[in-house]
């Protein structure tokens, strides 16, 4: 092919933000965790965030490997305690941008209590909670988010427990920014992550990520095309959901019962822990 090649920004993005010695990634075929990292980096690039003033914190699990690939300071902490460590970093150095990668088992199962109290405290963190419906790294055990009647290593006859809706929980606790996205569409998550980083206060972005190896294999979604299409078929935008609930026929409304709502669920201003802490220090200092 004759002609000069004009370099686009994606290759430059990789040059700036990635640790090349860590690549190739460890993720399985069809896993969407790489996409989550990709979208986070695009969001960082959109905001022109200084990598020297950004900390990536993660717990244990497939999703928590992500902090190792970014060319910034990071912490790979104990299981479920990523939010506790991140709170400590933010309390000690409030001017740092702290981004937490955590999984559904790590963030809502093992570290569920930390999630509750970090939201309640309203720490200024951006939490990217990657939900793949299972404990992927340890071999596909049932997680708090595993859908009812689905199969896993520890539920060989079907899961009888109702799943946890992490976004609804965060909304109830009053998190200033709550969103959920699937990874098939790149631009909404990029924009949402950028909004979450800019938000003063706790921002929770739940990403629905396909796991063909640990979850899909046991639930008839082993093929990559099938599992990626499953997420398209089983998600609905919150605006469309509300529209159909208001104006739709009973059949249309009945068709929504097994769909997962995606979109921005909550976006408002609330005084964060750091601001209240600074005010308190001003009040009581001698």
């Amino acid at each position: 092919m004759s002609g000069l090649l004009k370099l686009k920004t994606a290759a430059e993005l990789r040059q700036i933000y990635l640790r090349h010695e860590m690549f190739p990634t460890i993720f399985c075929d069809g896993c969407g965790l790489g996409n989550v990292l990709n979208y986070t980096l695009w969001a960082l690039d959109e905001l022109q965030l200084d990598l020297d003033r950004t900390v990536f914190v993660s717990g244990i699990g497939c999703s928590s490997r992500l902090s190792g690939y970014v060319n910034a300071d990071g912490m790979h902490t104990t299981h479920g305690r990523a939010l506790a460590f991140a709170s400590g970093i933010k309390a000690a150095q409030p001017d740092l941008n702290v981004i937490v990668f955590t999984g559904d088992g790590d963030g809502s199962g093992i570290g569920g209590n930390h999630l509750l109290h970090t939201i309640r405290r309203n720490m200024d963190l951006t939490v990217i909670l990657v939900n793949n419906f299972t404990y992927g790294m340890t071999g596909g055990q049932v997680a708090p988010t595993t859908p009812i009647d689905s199969f896993s290593t520890t539920t060989p006859y079907g899961n009888i427990e109702y799943p946890l809706d992490i976004c609804a929980l965060a909304q109830t606790l009053g998190a200033p920014y709550v969103a959920r996205w699937m990874i098939n569409q790149p631009y909404p998550p990029i924009k949402s992550i950028a909004q979450g980083i800019q938000k003063r206060g706790f921002a929770l972005i739940e990403m629905l990520v396909p796991c063909p190896t640990a979850y899909g294999r046991r639930n008839g979604l082993k093929q990559l095309e099938t599992i990626w299409q499953w997420y398209r078929d089983h998600t609905i935008l919150i605006d469309d959901y509300e529209h159909i609930m208001h104006f739709g026929s009973p059949e249309e409304r009945a068709a929504l019962h097994d769909k997962i709502k995606i979109g921005v669920f909550q976006d408002y201003e609330r005084e964060s822990f750091e601001e209240r802490w600074a005010t308190l220090v001003e009040q009581v200092k001698l």
Binding site: L5, K6, L7, K8, A10, A11, R14, L18, F23, P24, T25, F27, C31, G32, L33, G34, N35, N38, Y39, W42, I183, N184, P186
Partner: peptide, 11 residues
């Protein structure tokens, strides 16, 4: 944008 392994660049 969708490549999970950062392998493709379109030019």
């Amino acid at each position: 944008l969708l490549c999970p392994d950062f392998a493709i660049t379109v030019m």
